[in-house]
């Protein structure tokens, strides 16, 4: 059974077809990577799924509900969490308050004017921070965190509404190789434990080949390949438009040859 279903999605910018009739599905509990050259339409595709962009045509379905044209906050309320390519938090709040903010919103308590927010959902926020190993930092101003830690807090925020699908746009961008592996391993563990499906874009082939259940490849707005790590690695068209000879990510290429 599929959780997320993308059907013939298209979007053009000033005559250029950024995404062209793209269709794919994410099955429940699946860890699906979307890769492709810069400008292939990954971000456009992503931003249509999370509601930031309206598609020209095609539709997006999640658990039999049509997401097409909904605002990001409405999509979030249906149980879709997301993280950003450039991670950031609410800089004027503590780490804990950042997570509490999401919990307050999840509980529909935004329009409350009297009770101090700092005491609300505190325990649950700490538990979520515990999951990502950031409980100790709960009372620090979030803007003081190192980038890798911001990514972890962002993950805790994304988990606050008990999502059934996580959208992660380049989750490891700007991180060092070990941090990348640690973060994705953490995500993988959490989603397996909680049965969450994940769709993510990624440029680090080491991460993709090590963790993704399935990989789809976009190039010039079209879906050109869909398969497991071995199939994608040996896909001639993918090699041509994306991997090159593979010497800049030697491990994966070594495994392929």
């Amino acid at each position: 059974m599929s959780d997320l279903s993308i059907r013939a999605l298209s979007k053009a910018f000033g005559g250029v077809r950024a995404v062209n009739e793209v269709s794919f599905e994410v099955k429940r509990g699946e860890f699906l990577a979307m890769i492709g050259p810069n400008g292939a339409g990954k971000s456009t595709c992503f931003n249509m799924i999370n509601g930031q962009l309206a598609p020209d045509s095609g539709s997006i379905w999640f658990e039999q509900k049509n997401l097409t044209g909904l605002a990001p906050r409405e999509i979030w309320r249906l149980g879709v969490g997301r993280t950003f390519q450039v991670a950031s938090t609410f800089g004027s709040m503590t780490v804990g308050e950042n997570v509490q903010m999401a919990l307050l919103s999840h509980a529909n308590e935004i329009y409350r004017y009297w009770r101090p927010a700092a005491a609300m959902h505190r325990e649950r926020a700490l538990a979520l921070l515990d999951q990502v190993g950031m409980r100790e930092a709960a009372d620090r101003p979030s803007r003081e965190l190192a980038y890798g830690d911001v990514k972890r807090v962002e993950l805790a925020i994304a988990l606050a509404n008990d999502p059934r699908l996580l959208l992660m746009d380049e989750p490891t961008a700007g991180m060092a190789p070990r941090e990348r592996n640690d973060l994705i391993a953490l995500v993988k563990r959490l989603v397996v434990e909680q049965g969450i499906s994940v769709l993510f874009t990624e440029h680090s082939m080491d991460v993709v080949f090590a963790f993704a259940d399935r990989i789809i490849v976009l190039a010039r707005g079209r879906l050109i390949a869909d398969g497991n790590a071995a199939e994608i690695r040996d896909h001639p068209q993918v090699r041509e438009v994306y991997f090159g000879t593979g010497k800049t990510f030697a491990r994966a290429a070594g495994a392929a040859s």
């Binding site: 999370n50 930031q52 605002a71 990001p72 906050r73 979030w76 309320r77 997301r82 950003f84 950031s88 938090t89 609410f90 800089g91 004027s92 709040m93 308050e97 509490q100 903010m101 999401a102 307050l104 919103s105 999840h106 308590e109 935004i110 329009y111 409350r112 004017y113 009297w114 009770r115 101090p116 927010a117 700092a118 609300m120 925020i157 606050a160 509404n161």
Partner: peptide
């Protein structure tokens, strides 16, 4: 200090992120 004030600051700090956690 109430949730409303926090939501207002969240929207100021990052409107995109605030929308992404369901805040109008």
């Amino acid at each position: 200090f109430a949730p409303f004030g926090y939501a207002m600051r969240a929207g100021r700090d990052s409107a995109l992120r605030a929308e992404a956690i369901g805040i109008d």
